[in-house]
Design a protein around this nucleic acid. Structure first.
Lengths: 126, 126
DNA sequence: CAGTATCCAGAATGATACTG
DNA sequence: CAGTATCATTCTGGATACTG
């Protein structure tokens, strides 16, 4: 029996799933978005202090990507020393409920998932 | 003004955000989950045919990870040639609404996001 | 303070060939 | 059919040093 009703996925540019995962699947974007949600308006070093293990480079790269996507707004105050503030845009805010859905799911299921993984035996992805 | 009310994120093992992103942030997991949702019960090659650009190796690895996490159930029929069927578990099904939330958001916003990115100028993440 | 520039290690993914 | 094994490549992120 053929299953021709299945959609074809994976063609990169036009794949809606790829679009999402490419955007939030990196190591830090979701974390930065949630920190900004909590802090409202934050300076570079405030975000850096809140995400303990991120490197300065990756914070800069992540913020720039989020800004380019219009999820975060960057405001520069021309002073010395410089002051730069970051905050979510409306578009960025509209994404957050979905992220909370995911994190909520993770919190509810991580315990059992870890047990499953133990039973299955640790596997490598290579 | 200090912002000590900010939570501290990023400590890997105990970070709920890391837990989610590590699980669905890879290149293929979400795609495979959605194909299985649509197809209900599918054989290895049916999934492979539905995700055009995935390699055989990565499909095998992805399915094994999802199985280890208890999101997908694998059933082997001891025949020659072999027949193996994959389907979502209840846990796997419980994740999907959240993924649909994200994909829906992406579909609604991708147009504007692409425009933003053009205006901003293409940036590299390195 | 808020970044950049460089360089590098390791992880993730892909290509290809082979097998029970 | 449903994988595994191996090798090659690409991509990501971290360390460190430097700057307007």
């Amino acid at each position: 029996m053929e299953k021709d009703f299945l959609k074809k996925y994976g063609e990169a540019a036009h794949c809606p799933v790829r679009n999402v995962i490419d955007r939030i699947g990196d190591k830090w974007s979701v974390l930065v978005l949630m920190v900004l949600e909590e802090g409202n308006v934050l300076r570079f070093n405030e975000i850096w202090g809140s995400i303990q293990t991120i490197s300065q480079k990756m914070l800069a790269v992540t913020l720039k990507t989020l800004e380019a996507d219009g999820l975060v707004k960057r405001t520069v105050y021309p002073q010395i020393p410089p002051k730069v503030e970051y905050q979510l845009t409306e578009r960025g805010k509209s994404l957050l409920p979905h992220l909370h859905g995911l994190v909520g799911w993770a919190n509810e299921n991580m315990g059992e998932i870890k047990e499953s993984r133990e039973l299955f035996g640790n596997i490598s992805r290579n």
